[in-house]
């Protein structure tokens, strides 16, 4: 085990956590702008703890989508965490409580930092440090943002609705760097724009999700 591998893992964990935590301010502010109470925003950060799903909840709630659509969209966006968990299972190792906390902290960033390390100890450090630092930072910044958001008044005057759109684009961007996902994103975007005027709030996102799965299955068939 080389100390430099551990140092690299610690440094990557902390810089990723700092960036993500800052972004928690915008979640907190946008959540109260969307009509959530302070504690509703905080409960999402404490217990849902997955940025994409959390933003989906506040975006759809603001649009007046029914509860079932909100739960479905948040759940579908959380599916990838379950797959990360499978990859992290060996990194985390045995132990009920350890796996329970690891499960809660299994998100894009903790998984990405762990996978980026080559040595097993550096992987473990990367996963736990990133997960813990983001959990603390994200929740603290959510609280700060929610308090700030309450004081701001009209969210549109501050461009907070546009900030939410940019946040989704920022989450999408690293995933559409090759042709196939970019094409799927384009089709999903067009379908959504067509569905917005005709379908009830919350449904366009689910229609796009179904189209995404259909396109993925078609691609699998042509691979086989």
């Amino acid at each position: 085990m080389t100390p430099s591998a551990v140092r690299a893992s610690v440094s990557m964990s902390l810089s990723v956590a700092a960036a993500v935590s800052l972004y928690g301010i915008s979640f907190g502010a946008l959540a109260v702008a969307s009509g959530l109470a302070f504690w509703q925003a905080q409960v999402l950060s404490l217990f849902m703890f997955s940025g994409g799903s959390q933003f989906a909840v506040i975006g759809l709630a603001a649009a007046g989508a029914p509860g079932l659509s909100i739960v479905t969209a948040a759940g579908l966006l959380g599916v990838r965490n379950g797959l990360y968990a499978v990859r992290m299972s060996a990194v985390v190792g045995p132990g009920f409580w350890k796996r329970l906390i690891a499960g809660h902290w299994t998100i894009d960033e903790s998984t990405a930092v762990a996978i980026a390390q080559t040595e097993p100890r550096a992987q473990r450090i990367g996963f736990w440090l990133t997960g813990a630092a983001i959990f603390v930072g994200w929740n603290a910044m959510t609280a700060a943002g929610a308090m700030l958001g309450d004081a701001l008044g009209d969210p549109r005057a501050w461009g907070l609705d546009a900030a939410a759109a940019a946040a989704f684009l920022g989450l999408l961007w690293p995933r559409i760097q090759t042709r196939q996902p970019a094409a799927v994103a384009a089709v999903a975007a067009v379908i959504t724009a067509l569905a917005v005027p005709t379908a009830p709030a919350g449904l366009p996102v689910l229609i796009a999700a179904a189209a995404g799965i259909a396109m993925a299955l078609l691609a699998e068939r042509s691979h086989a």
Partner: peptide
């Protein structure tokens, strides 16, 4: 691969609803 594309489709859809929709 299917999970990756599902995530992409959902996020792309959320970008659109958040950018150009106001109610219906």
């Amino acid at each position: 691969r299917i999970s990756d594309l599902l995530t992409v489709a959902l996020l792309a859809s959320l970008v659109v609803t958040q950018t150009v929709s106001t109610g219906n």
